[in-house]
């Protein structure tokens, strides 16, 4: 399996103090639709900007499609990017934007781009500044896809869109994946959307990678355990507690394990993607909470 993005100890510092991303090491396999989730300020935008070469790393390395995400035309041609808030030139028309794409990209598919715009029902003579959020996002996506990239990076492209526009945007995206097999990395807050479209998940929190892996594998190896209240938990060796909460009578755990749990004291439940994401996004604070509540996890 080839790798789309590899990072090793990647870090980005703004100013003197603030680390937007630190010690990030991961591999994003190609051929996937990768969901990148995390709270605001977790480093999602920074990671994507580093991958497309808009930013340069403070520490560590990043390799995109085997190349350096630098300022080289050959590299830029292979990576499509849709930035947060889908910026477009407000005083240029939709047709101008397509012309721009044709002028600036050697692999530009003019036929496909024109077809896409026609399908979205946007008047090509309309100024980009007058488009609705959904139409502008469609235009930005068309620009990014018509250059025929191998990797497409999208930074919160659907965040500001209404449900219908969001659905249309994701439909366009998924059809492109079905047609070209383009690898997609998509950052989003909307886990319900990611549940549909992504088959690989990366959770960033507080500038760190908390979790990365294929969605199916992640869901298969995480379980919710519900049982009577206990302060000292004995679990199989490979079992790691991600999240724990207690009431007077009951203890609920979210654990990662590769082996099934047979302890009859626990009710073992499957979890969905949202449970998984929330558990990992809250993990940093949970470590503190667990320490205070006196929970002991025995190895």
């Amino acid at each position: 399996m080839s790798v789309a993005v590899t990072t090793d100890g990647l870090g980005k510092r703004y100013g003197r103090r603030r680390w937007a991303l630190s010690d990030c090491s991961l591999e994003v396999p190609s051929g996937h639709v990768v969901g990148l989730v995390g709270p605001n300020g977790a480093g999602k935008t920074t990671l994507l900007n580093l991958a497309v070469g808009l930013l340069s790393a403070t520490t560590g390395t990043i390799s995109v499609l085997g190349g350096n995400p630098s300022d080289r035309p050959e590299q830029l041609a292979r990576v499509g990017f849709v930035a947060q808030d889908t910026p477009t030139y407000s005083h240029l028309s939709v047709a101008d934007h397509l012309h721009l794409g044709a002028r600036l990209n050697p692999g530009w598919d003019a036929h496909w781009a024109a077809k896409r715009i026609a399908e979205t029902g946007v008047d090509p003579t309309q100024k980009a500044g007058q488009l609705s959020g959904g139409q502008r996002a469609q235009l930005a996506l068309t620009l990014a896809l018509a250059k025929r990239p191998e990797l497409l990076l999208l930074d919160e492209p659907v965040a500001g869109l209404d449900p219908l526009a969001r659905r249309e945007f994701l439909q366009t995206l998924m059809i492109a994946v079905a047609d070209d097999g383009v690898t997609v990395v998509l950052s989003s807050h909307l886990v319900a959307d990611l549940e549909r479209v992504s088959d690989y998940l990366i959770v960033l929190a507080a500038a760190h990678v908390e979790l990365a892996g294929e969605v199916e594998h992640l869901l298969a190896t995480h379980r919710r355990l519900v049982g009577p209240r206990r302060d000292s938990v004995s679990l199989p060796g490979d079992c790691r507690v991600i999240d724990a909460s207690h009431t007077d009578r009951q203890t609920t755990l979210l654990v990662r394990t590769d082996t099934p749990i047979h302890d009859p004291a626990w009710i073992v439940e499957d979890i969905d993607l949202e449970d998984l994401v929330l558990a990992y996004m809250g993990q940093t604070s949970n470590v503190e909470r667990n320490r205070r509540s006196g929970l002991r996890v025995q190895p």
């Binding site: 808009l54 035309p73 990576v79 990017f81 910026p87 477009t88 930005a140 990014a144």
Partner: peptide, 16 residues
Amino acid sequence: ETGTYKLAWTQSVTRT
């Protein structure tokens, strides 16, 4: 200011 540099710099043209 408007963020359009992100559009321009991610076409297949160097920012220089």
